[in-house]
């Protein structure tokens, strides 16, 4: 995560740091940047605001988000992953199946069942992390990695119903901060449904620093630059990066 990403995280936090549990914020960002925005948002929530939360992965197996968090040295022990897609991907699950802060659930194809499944599991205590570090009855936020992905598996009315049920369940039963990242142009009809369900919309592009806002030398000093020793292990010629 470079200086611009870190500044973006601070800008996001400044918009939401007064949030109270029960608030709902919809982030608008272009489709191809949703994964990166989620990482930036998670860093802000987990590290800057010291919150505990749930990440539901419907787009990619949780391992990819976990890998990104680890690579960017974001502490995620206070994050409970609920993975609805891993069973379909051929990923190795044995190491992460229902251990620690990962829960594997079935099915992006039956997403309409997910709100009830989640709330039933929360009520029964079945979704608490096994190591006990995350008390899910007391989490601060919930996030879905990319809700629009569900349109690949379900008809739009089913996804819209899911969103309405999901918001109703978590807003009504649990007083937690709900956020969602979506592309309002690519998935306009779903976005229009979502915006009626949220208190606040934040356009990520407006929070970005304009190009050239940070000088290139500073930008080149990535937070990860000290990790480049891993490449040296293989006599690896360093990648061409600006400012270095």
């Amino acid at each position: 995560m470079n200086v611009e990403d870190t500044q973006l995280m601070k800008n996001i936090i400044s918009q939401i740091n007064n949030f109270s549990n029960g608030n709902k914020v919809l982030f608008s960002v272009s489709y191809e940047k949703i994964a990166k925005t989620n990482i930036i948002l998670l860093r802000g929530l987990l590290e800057e605001l010291n919150k505990k939360g749930i990440l539901i992965t419907v787009d990619r197996p949780h391992q990819y988000m976990e890998h990104l968090l680890r690579m960017h040295r974001i502490k995620y022990e206070n994050l409970l992953f609920i993975d609805t897609i891993a069973r379909f991907t051929g990923e190795e699950l044995s190491d992460n199946l229902n251990i620690g802060n990962v829960k594997i659930l079935d099915s992006p194809f039956q997403i309409d069942l997910l709100p009830a499944l989640l709330s039933n599991n929360l009520n029964s205590g079945n979704l608490s992390s096994i190591d006990g570090k995350i008390d899910v009855s007391n989490v601060d936020f919930i996030l879905i990695d990319n809700v629009a992905t569900l349109l690949n598996y379900n008809d739009p009315p089913i996804v819209q119903n899911f969103l309405e049920n999901y918001m109703a369940k978590f807003n009504g039963l649990y007083n937690i901060f709900i956020s969602l990242t979506m592309d309002k142009i690519t998935h306009n009809s779903l976005y229009e449904v979502a915006r009626k369900l949220f208190d606040k919309e934040i356009d990520i592009d407006i929070l970005r620093i304009p190009k050239g806002g940070i000088d290139r030398e500073r930008r080149g000093k990535s937070l990860l630059s000290e990790r480049e020793d891993i490449f040296d292990l293989f006599s690896y010629r360093k990648c061409y990066t600006g400012g270095e």
Binding site: R216, F234, S235, Y236, R237, C239, Y240, T241, G242, E244
Partner: peptide, 14 residues
């Protein structure tokens, strides 16, 4: 754009 929006990574030797 070099080193910023486009980053080159040489795998040739590795």
């Amino acid at each position: 754009y070099f080193g910023k929006e486009v980053i080159y990574c040489d795998l040739g030797s590795v």
